[in-house]
Computed example of a mutant assay.
Amino acid sequence: MARFSEHKLARRLLASLRGDMLLLADRNFAGYQLWGLARATGAHLAWRIKKNLVFVPLRVLSDGSYLSIMRTPAENIRHGQARAAGRTLTEPPRGHLVRIIEYTVTIHPQAGPPRTETFRLVTSLLDHRLAPAHQLARAYHQRWEIENGFAELKNRLRGAGFILRSKAPELIYQEIYALLTVYQALCALQTRAAEHGGTDPDRISFTVTVQLARLAVAAQAAADVTTLAAARREATTELLAALLPPRRNRQCQRIKKPSKNTFEVRKRDQTRTPSNVRYTLKVTKHPT
């Protein structure tokens, strides 16, 4: 797997995108070619971008965001050479028309002073009336939910002490795909239950979902269409009856043990700071 970069691996997932999706990605992925391939699927994009990338405003919108061009690689070289020579290019650059949103996230921890971090998003949603900047900023903030998804897949679905049984690489791939398939099915069940109850999917307990699925499998719930539909309705009712409390904002300290890591090393007797925090998102209005 080390032979492949994240960009190459990401391209394998593009076929799964649909026109009714909004794809979030971190700042490692924003680039002219990959952006074009992802947009060609019909899905809309909202990706974080690095602070050193230059996007010249074409038109500032009323919500503080602005339209710009994600330039082609050739245009980047041409404009870079012009800046180095002190020349100003008058013609518009070639590339993707995009919208830039800049905002800050202020974290108010239970202990210690608040800290503020600046974010920049590039999005294909150009109409600020249909997709206001503050809504897209909050949507990107949800990208961190994937960390909970990793924990569900690696720990809660497999169970304590579970390891892959297969010895051959092909069979290991088969086991991994089986786990991913089951996880996707459980997430679909959670989402349908949340839609039925008019609640946020993150309030549906994954642990309870796994327990109900195991009971349904043991009871041969998929024996026929009628039995499966009844089992699904029963599971939906039980999931909505066991809702989790509303998700609280949290932070996780970047303290790791490897010596080569730049983060502070956590000692065994060191207590962690409280993880509960309060977030404030504020869109930065670009000057007109």
Rank of each mutant, 00 (worst) to 15 (best):
T118D: 09
D200N: 08
A213V: 08
W35R: 07
A185N: 01
D224T: 01
T271D: 12
A30F: 07
R39P: 00
L186Q: 01
N148A: 11
Y177M: 11
R18W: 03
I163M: 02
E75W: 06
T271M: 01
Q33A: 14
P114E: 11
V225S: 09
V56E: 15
R232W: 07
L179T: 00
A241S: 10
R233M: 13
A82M: 14
R272E: 10
L97I: 08
Q211T: 13
A235N: 04
A25S: 05
T262V: 08
I176R: 07
R48M: 09
I69Q: 01
C252I: 07
T226A: 08
R83Q: 14
S275A: 06
I77T: 15
S259Y: 06
D63M: 10
A84V: 08
L23P: 00
S259F: 09
S68T: 11
D202I: 05
L89E: 10
R83V: 12
Y66P: 03
R129K: 14
K256F: 04
R78M: 13
L45A: 10
A216I: 03
L180W: 04
T199S: 01
Y32N: 11
K50N: 04
A219F: 00
M70N: 12
P57G: 05
R254Q: 10
H7Q: 15
L179M: 12
G86H: 06
Q253E: 15
D202K: 03
P274M: 00
A221D: 07
T123D: 07
P245Q: 05
D224F: 01
R232L: 12
I172L: 14
